[in-house]
Nucleic acid binder design. Structure first.
Lengths: 361, 361
DNA sequence: GTTTTACTGTAAAACGTTTAACAGGTGGAC
DNA sequence: GTCCACCTGTTAAACGTTTTACAGTAAAAC
């Protein structure tokens, strides 16, 4: 019943040819007479034969697998990356092994270690911190590697694909200032992650330059529920800012949750700029103004770089830096500028405080 | 520079032992003298040696990989499934190969075929239609297989883990009727998918039993943006129902998008029950009442069943059916029942029509 | 008619592991 | 003192492919 799996030899015997011929039929690297080919194909189908990848890979040394490592498989940013990579990999005949580091440096190393055991043709990794995992740094000479998102391009010894995080911060900051805001909170995840720091730096620098005021950054972690608690707690001991810029999609969720819980209205009481651009962000009465990362481009670039490397390109590691765009929608209200014709900020602040009082009861 | 990868033999030479000893150190299936063991471990570290899985698997016949096939890697329901499976797999020392069938029967077969090439220890698959892929049906005797979500448990020849879709429809339907609704639209994805049909059947049966009216099902597909267009279009040629029950998280998104676009208020103009329960559903002023699938339990059960099979359990295939729960929040308004004290439904309908008129301009 | 060339098919040697079978040495039981 | 068991370590044979080298045949070139 549980019959042994068919091998090249079984097919060869049944078709009355040598295993080399069968192999040639399957790999196509040598012409095979039509009649024989058909015999082989029929035999293979009858035995539901399937090349054993382990054996194939062992002998040929070529793997047709890429490893993809991300910090969190529940974060839609990373899964949409994976979805796109999986598609391109499929088209080129590669399979994808996924691993999640769960934002844990140690797990990251160990996941990479087992990933490497597959002798993959390449690795696309989103590190969980901005120090490149030692195991990758060591392998980078022999293993095509592309680092995505959470990287400092200048420090990396491999190809990188990142967005211009500083610019992203600036874009959001400038827009908020243009809309009259200067009392701004930055909803960060972790301040020790390079791209987050850059987003903060971008926003802070432009807001400071234009208004003289410094936005305050709050670290909410990378879990939406816990982040909501932290932000709610923060709201209790600080005056309500006139605008919040969320620096990741998870902190966007955290901020929204906290705000909803305290019945603080967007954008009447506080304006919001979200990060990333997902369907749910527009599927609401007040659609969210958001900084959009070009996920498609990120995935495509990462794959293209990886492919080049897998084809043997040994040139200097190259950083690719993509721009984000601001999707203007309804969650950012124009308010009168502080110090302009009327003391709008104060008014806004007190109104908000009143409402909050209300909701905390 | 691009040095050859270290093998057992390299380590053995450097440590001055035989390759069998090195293998024993790594697999631990035979005791090795402490001193030798340490020599081996040091040599391995110095060469950054790593067992070649292809060779190991070829020889031992054991794989320590499971394949996971889902219909869509952009659907959070499936990715949260994967996330949980990956964690449990990790704990047992398995790696995970993911593949997406992109809701395409043909691609599904071909993805499964390549998945099988890995000789995985097991496969967890969410079929894209309710007919079990032929290739799996054929393999099921020798390959541990668990089918999840989109399956008809009675028809499957493998273990299945599903929710009680009929019951889910009933729960939502009953709740809507209790809240006074009888004019109900069902936002389905595809009506040819068994679980969707069951959800429809559940909702229709209970609503019909309690009110005599039959909810109408609309097929919106499995893409939120396109679904929103379809639903918007549907709204234009039908009177606004008093409630919508979305049967998947994607159609939830589609409905929300269409409603937001036409400025139809939830729950004032139309009530909504969402499907699945994600953070973004509560992170809004009117948090969504939703049917919650026990994703954790689904993933856990699927893994446990798979593990049993991988350990050799050859008993009859067993279906596991889990219950959903209704998370009552703010998106479903209580209205006066049709035919009761006041003609609320008609009033509701005309108000909605007016508003819609407005938005279509 | 002989030599080339081209074309197909096969034999056989790896690839890096696991693992059965064996070898050598030590210590205990008798 | 002999025998046996035990403990460690090694040898060598697979596993199912890919691929090189070669053989055989037929067609083309001379």
């Amino acid at each position: 019943m549980t019959r042994r799996r068919a091998t090249l030899k079984d097919v060869a015997d049944r078709a009355g040819v040598s295993i080399a011929t069968v192999s040639n039929v399957f790999t196509g690297r040598k012409a095979v007479n039509d009649e024989l080919r058909m015999r082989v194909e029929r035999a293979a189908k009858e035995l539901s034969f399937q090349i054993d990848r382990a054996a194939s890979q062992l002998k040929s040394g070529k793997a047709r697998v890429v490893g993809v490592l991300v910090p969190d498989l529940d974060d839609t940013f990373f899964t949409s990356l994976i979805s796109r990579i999986e598609l391109m990999a499929l088209e080129e005949g590669y399979d994808v092994i996924v691993a999640s580091s769960r934002d844990d440096r140690q797990l990251e190393e160990s996941r990479l270690h087992t990933l490497l055991g597959w002798r993959p043709s390449g690795i696309i990794a989103v590190p969980c911190s901005d120090t490149v995992p030692t195991i990758l740094a060591r392998e980078v000479a022999r293993l095509p590697t592309v680092l995505v998102d959470r990287v400092v391009p200048e420090a990396a010894t491999a190809d990188t694909v990142t967005i211009d995080n500083f610019e992203a911060g600036q874009i959001a900051g400038r827009y908020l200032v243009e809309m009259g805001h200067s009392d701004i909170a930055l909803a960060a995840s972790h301040l020790d992650i390079a791209p987050i720091r850059e987003r903060v730096r971008g926003a802070v620098s432009i807001v400071q330059e234009l208004t003289g005021k410094e936005p305050v950054a709050v670290a909410l972690g990378s879990n939406a529920e816990r982040g909501a608690d932290i932000f709610a707690h923060w709201l209790e001991r600080h005056p309500l800012p006139s605008a919040v810029f969320a620096l990741t999609n998870v902190t966007t969720l955290a901020v929204l949750t906290a705000l909803a819980r305290q019945r603080i209205d967007i954008p009447d009481q506080v304006s919001l700029i979200a990060f990333d651009d997902y369907t749910w962000m527009s599927a609401r009465k007040t659609a969210l103004t958001a900084i959009r990362q070009p996920v498609d481009d990120i995935a495509r670039l990462a794959w293209e770089r990886l492919q080049l490397r897998m084809e043997g390109d040994a040139s200097q590691p190259r950083p690719s830096i993509l721009s984000t765009t601001l999707q203007v929608r309804d969650s950012t209200r124009r308010i009168a500028r502080a110090g302009d014709e009327e003391p709008a900020v104060a008014e806004q602040g007190s109104a908000a405080a009143g409402e909050r009082q209300n909701s905390i009861h």
